[in-house]
Amino acid sequence: MSPPPPLDAGAELRARVRELTASWRAAGRYVPRSDSWLRSFDLEFSKALAADGLIAMTYPKEYGGAGRSNVERLAVTEELLRAGAPVAAHWIGDRQIGPAILRHGSPALRAEILPRIAAAEAVFCLGMSEPEAGSDLAAVRTSATPVRGGWLISGHKIWTSHAHRATHAYVLARTARTERKHEGLTEFVLDMAADGVSTTPIPDLAGEHHFNEVRFEEVFVPAHRVIGTVGNGWRQVVEQLSFERGGAERVLSSYPVLAELVAHAAEERDDAELRSLLGSLVARLAVLRRLCREVAGRLDAGQAPVQEAAALKYLGNAFEVDVVEALRRTGLCHEPSPDGAFGQALLASPGFGLRGGAAEVLLSLVARQETRA
């Protein structure tokens, strides 16, 4: 295994992100919040990042990217999450759709979509989960039928974050019926403004609207909007999940809560139990950040670290929940407000272990990991 990247990688990038987020906070343009990569949407903030070259960092310059490494991108995403910044508008497109198109998309698809992601003009939602399928991603019933010049997509997706704001959708659809459900799947890029697309909001427990149901009724998708090879979608989507599961958002969604816990511990210096608990959490965070760097390093090497990303997500989800529980134990949050860091994280925490794959799915992937010399 290659050595981990240096711990100080991206110091200049971290400084740029801290300057940008501090200026936006000082101007009252956003309030830091937990789970910001899913729940805090501000297209203007994403465009400001794009103007500073902080989106699509790993994409080639010919497509509007910066040609930087995934390790350098990790430095930026860590700082954005630490600041609780409103990054949901660009997160999915930048994180996984762009890299998937870079690896498998046609030259025409790359030229059409990647510069728009880099400029924060294309806002993506994920059309993966379906009703009655649970965590079984291969149980896709949405179909794609070939027609002249492209495909007609019909089906029903659920828990689709920000579909009501998205310009484009990534859609996993069935293009062939086979005995093995993992076969005959294909990935598409679909216009959310196309005829036949409809969305229905699913408010969460706090009344916020970021989840949606999405229905497709014979939506036409041009032939060049296929990602990769027709029928090879399962192998490609498993690879793509390395980008989704292996990032800092699986560790730092509840970082604002951890910051409150640190501040409280600084005031309660004689509370040995609290300081011991905080020390344990900080040690776990250091290990998880190291795992994030290792996943980023493998992506830079052109690999698809499926098992490593699954392990990171499993351990990171447990850590995020434990951070929330630790602050609860301090007695600071008898009546949590949905507007506070603790209340936001508490409301989001049931989803930590579900989105991107339930624990059972992740453990099955880890169990199949080959032993490396």
Rank of each mutant, 00 (worst) to 15 (best):
D8Y: 03
E244F: 15
D270Q: 14
S276P: 02
S106M: 05
G351I: 06
I117P: 00
G302T: 05
P222F: 10
F41M: 15
S46M: 11
S36G: 03
A118H: 05
A108R: 09
A341Y: 00
L126G: 11
D270I: 05
S280P: 01
F211N: 15
E132H: 15
N232A: 15
T142C: 13
L346G: 00
L346H: 00
L109W: 06
L347N: 05
F352V: 02
R82H: 11
F216P: 06
G246N: 13
A100N: 12
G10E: 00
R39I: 03
A119N: 08
P256W: 05
E19P: 00
P115H: 11
E360R: 06
H162V: 10
E121H: 10
C292N: 08
R355A: 10
S106Y: 02
A206T: 09
F243V: 08
R33M: 15
P107H: 06
A119L: 04
Q96N: 15
F216Y: 11
L241R: 11
E112C: 07
K47W: 14
R95D: 13
L81N: 04
V257K: 01
A85G: 13
I92D: 14
L315F: 09
H224Y: 07
A88P: 01
V230S: 00
D8S: 07
R177A: 11
E260N: 10
G150Y: 03
T371N: 12
V71F: 14
T145I: 12
G196R: 02
A120Y: 04
D270S: 15
E335F: 04
E217M: 09
V31F: 10
S23Q: 10
T58N: 08
F220K: 01
E218H: 04
M128K: 13
H264A: 10
L81Q: 07
F45W: 03
Y170G: 07
L241W: 06
A15P: 00
R250Q: 14
Y63K: 09
G246V: 09
L137R: 08
R372F: 05
V71W: 12
N317I: 00
V197R: 00
G207E: 03
T142I: 04
T145G: 03
V282I: 08
P256R: 05
S143T: 15
T200G: 15
R103C: 11
S129E: 15
L81S: 08
A48I: 09
L365T: 09
T160N: 13
F243K: 01
G331E: 01
E121Q: 09
P115K: 15
E360I: 04
G228C: 05
L347W: 01
W234E: 14
F220Y: 00
D94M: 12
P203C: 06
V171R: 03
F352D: 01
H104P: 03
V323M: 02
T77C: 14
A193T: 02
G196F: 03
V262S: 07
A111R: 07
Q369I: 05
P3L: 10
R165H: 13
L281F: 06
V230N: 07
